[in-house]
Amino acid sequence: MRSYLLRRLVGMIVVIFLVLTIAFVLVRLAPGDPASLMLGPDASPDEVAALRGRLGLDRPILVQYATFLGNALQGDLGRSLFFNQPVLTVLANRAEPTIFLALFSLMVALVIATPVGIWAAYRRGSFLDQASITSAMLAASVPSFLTGLIFQRYLATDLGWFPASGYGGAGADFAERMRHLVLPSITLGITNSALILRFTRASMLDILGEDYVRTARAKGMTERRVVLRHALKNAGIPIITVIGLTFALLVSGAVVTERVFNLPGMGNLVVNAVLRRDYPVIQGTLIVVAGLYVLVNLATDLLYLVVDKRVRY
């Protein structure tokens, strides 16, 4: 097990190194001079030269790369041109809505997808099975912004059950801020439940046809014990994999939903950074999101050891 963890840690280091390199190269491959693009067409040559010196763009490319890697390894991802703050500080200030939105959306998706997927596999070919597949395809096909607008129209505006947008005022407490996340969480949860539902159903179908499941039934075990203890436990690895990937996708891909509900999260921050040409924020977000994917993959691999002890061997 130690060698397994060591290999995973080495793989993480390699991936992070590649991500840092790609982030560095992408900014340098942008058309035109980054300093000129950041300042706009009205900037004077002196202002462009000053910004180039401030960003270190006037130094040799290998020196820039070494400096960038050294700063990144120390937690310095640069300074936002718009906020005039360290990039990590800017991202930390916007992380709360995005993280909680991803967690609540994943909870909604699991509540919908897991029991329906298990029951659909158990009742293969039934009306519920066909209805669940159709509903999953429909949920995956409808864009999240359209679902969000429909919920805003009826659940927020007409019925007044939830806030239509925003994240509470400046003095809003934690409960009020979480209340503003209910509607966008339902929107994202319904959209992302489709993939988890289909994986759960497919994994359960494979396991329910195994010989040891038929043997368990022949021994007189109850159907509930057979499905939940034997089948679901052995079908857990593919389900855990898709859950981990879904959480990472929710964190990095909630841009549209945050824009629809006007949430001050990381997705909204990246869109505004692109419009403002705030390249340090874009570059820092890319690195942080890639690091999150690496950590989620590591956590998923460790969960394999908990769910199925055979993975240790």
Rank of each mutant, 00 (worst) to 15 (best):
P34N: 08
L39K: 06
R179V: 03
L69H: 03
M12V: 11
P163C: 10
L9H: 03
S80Q: 09
V14A: 10
G70H: 04
G117N: 05
A72K: 00
A43E: 05
G171L: 10
L103E: 05
A172E: 05
L245K: 01
F162N: 01
R310W: 08
G267S: 10
W119D: 08
T241L: 06
Y313K: 08
A139I: 00
N71R: 14
L5S: 02
A231D: 06
L81D: 10
L228F: 15
E210S: 14
A235L: 08
D76N: 15
R201F: 12
A235G: 14
L51W: 05
L250F: 11
G160S: 06
L159Q: 07
D33G: 10
R198K: 14
T200H: 07
S3R: 15
D278F: 00
V294W: 05
G236S: 15
A172V: 11
L286E: 00
L81P: 04
N297V: 07
T114P: 01
V15A: 09
A120Q: 02
F17H: 07
S80D: 13
G171F: 07
G253Y: 02
I237L: 12
A216E: 11
L57N: 12
I118C: 02
G168F: 02
G117E: 05
A72M: 04
R225K: 13
A140V: 04
V274I: 14
F151P: 02
L128V: 10
F82Q: 15
E176I: 11
A43F: 08
E96F: 14
V19F: 06
A202Y: 11
L249D: 08
M204K: 08
G125D: 13
R94V: 06
V296E: 09
E210K: 15
S141N: 08
Y65I: 03
I99E: 11
Y313W: 10
R312P: 00
G160T: 08
L77M: 12
I16H: 02
S3Q: 11
A299P: 01
A102K: 03
I61K: 13
S165H: 03
V306L: 13
G267V: 03
I99Y: 10
R198N: 09
T222P: 03
F82P: 01
L6I: 14
M137R: 05
R276W: 07
A66Q: 00
P238W: 04
F24R: 07
G244Y: 01
L37C: 05
I243F: 02
L20T: 08
Y304N: 11
V260N: 10
Y4S: 10
L292D: 00
V25P: 06
N297M: 10
N297W: 11
G171S: 13
I112T: 05
P264F: 05
V260D: 12
V296G: 08
R59D: 09
V281M: 02
S203H: 04
I287F: 00
A121D: 04
A50G: 05
S80R: 03
A30I: 15
P280G: 03
A95V: 07
S44Q: 09
L6Y: 07
M107L: 15
L205T: 11
L302S: 06
G75P: 05
L18I: 14
R94T: 12
P86V: 13
L37S: 12
P184H: 12
Y279I: 01
V242A: 09
G11Y: 00
V182E: 04
L91R: 01
N268W: 02
K233W: 04
V108F: 09
L249S: 13
L128W: 09
Y279D: 01
F247Y: 14
D278Y: 00
T147A: 13
V271I: 15
M221S: 06
